[in-house]
Design a protein around this nucleic acid. Structure first.
Length: 294
DNA sequence: TACCAGGAGAGCG
DNA sequence: CGCTCTCATGGT
């Protein structure tokens, strides 16, 4: 039966934390709910005890695409119980039980994280809003709602000039996004194929793209393809690992990266998202005596 | 004003 | 391999 509204059972699902946790950048709060675009569909989400209600702009017969995006079928308890049983992970889970990983479109995820480097989340959101407004196709929206746009295709961005991209405030990231868009649009790399490769091979293909290093590759592996063992190490995670696990030794990035490959288990990516959220939302660590100027 | 932001790439020892 | 520097841009 075709309908514009659907209810998904969703225990232990903190929708607000999930949509604002830095894995996705285009959801906006609206009347107790959230409005966004998934692929080429306008979507409104609202959570109420134990479920998520979704509204779309036109009738839909098959809702699997949204269940897949939200990962509502996931055995979440199994994920939590696979975490290492240590104090940092207990604190991180205790601070925000219900934080989830979405399953995004690979191209949108890849392009978004190319634009994320040394930018704060609010600024990433601003860049992407400009990019979608200018180069994304408009999508149907229920009457009374603001216009909404699909994420621009690689083919569309491949035909845009670097100067036009820089006008979206992306700075030195513009040539990276443009070059990667051209590789994808030309068919030289098929993003859909990476889903079926071993994670290391998929990662290697992503790192070959201009503007994509280990961190951004791991974001795409985790947030788009769902490789649960991918563990993006950014500045926040690096601080978290150093403070929580190596308070005295302070290893560098390469050693920390190797640590994450074995320590956090089969759902390391989920553990990473909990540590990231925990570091970003808890009160700042006290400044050590002597580090103060005045 | 100075410093920093979910990094990547190039140059160096 | 591991360190350092630069690359735009906006916010505090």
């Amino acid at each position: 039966m075709n309908r514009c509204e659907q209810v998904f059972p969703a225990r232990d699902y903190d929708l607000a934390a999930t949509l604002t946790s830095g894995q996705v950048f285009r959801w906006q709060p609206h009347d107790n709910g959230w409005v966004g675009v998934i692929d080429r569909r306008w979507v409104r989400l609202e959570s109420a005890d134990g479920s998520i209600t979704a509204c779309v702009a036109g009738p839909v017969s098959d809702w699997n695409w949204l269940a897949h995006y939200l990962q509502t079928e996931l055995d979440f308890g199994a994920v939590l119980s696979s975490f290492p049983d240590d104090e940092p992970m207990r604190s991180a889970v205790g601070a925000c039980r219900g934080l989830r990983l979405l399953r995004q479109d690979p191209w949108e995820c890849l392009a978004s994280f190319i634009l994320s480097s040394t930018k704060q989340i609010v600024q990433i959101r601003q860049i992407l809003a400009l990019l979608c407004e200018r180069y994304g196709d408009p999508v149907p929206v229920p009457t009374g709602h603001a216009p909404a746009f699909a994420f621009p295709t690689a083919a569309r961005l491949a035909g845009v000039s670097e100067a036009e991209l820089r006008n979206c405030k992306m700075g030195f990231r513009a040539p990276y996004l443009l070059a990667t868009a051209r590789v994808i649009a030309s068919g030289q790399l098929d993003l859909a194929r990476l889903q079926h490769l071993p994670v290391a091979d998929s990662r290697a293909e992503l790192i070959n793209l201009p503007g994509v290093g280990r961190k951004i590759a791991d974001c795409v592996l985790l947030f788009a393809y769902g490789f649960q063992d991918a563990f993006p190490v950014d500045v926040w995670i690096m601080k978290a690992l150093q403070q929580l696990y190596f308070p005295r030794r302070r290893p560098g990035l390469p050693r920390l990266q190797r640590f994450t490959e074995t320590y956090f288990g089969s759902n390391a990516g989920y553990a990473q998202q909990y540590l990231f959220h925990y570091m970003r939302t808890r009160r700042p660590a006290p400044v050590p005596r002597g580090a103060l100027k005045g």
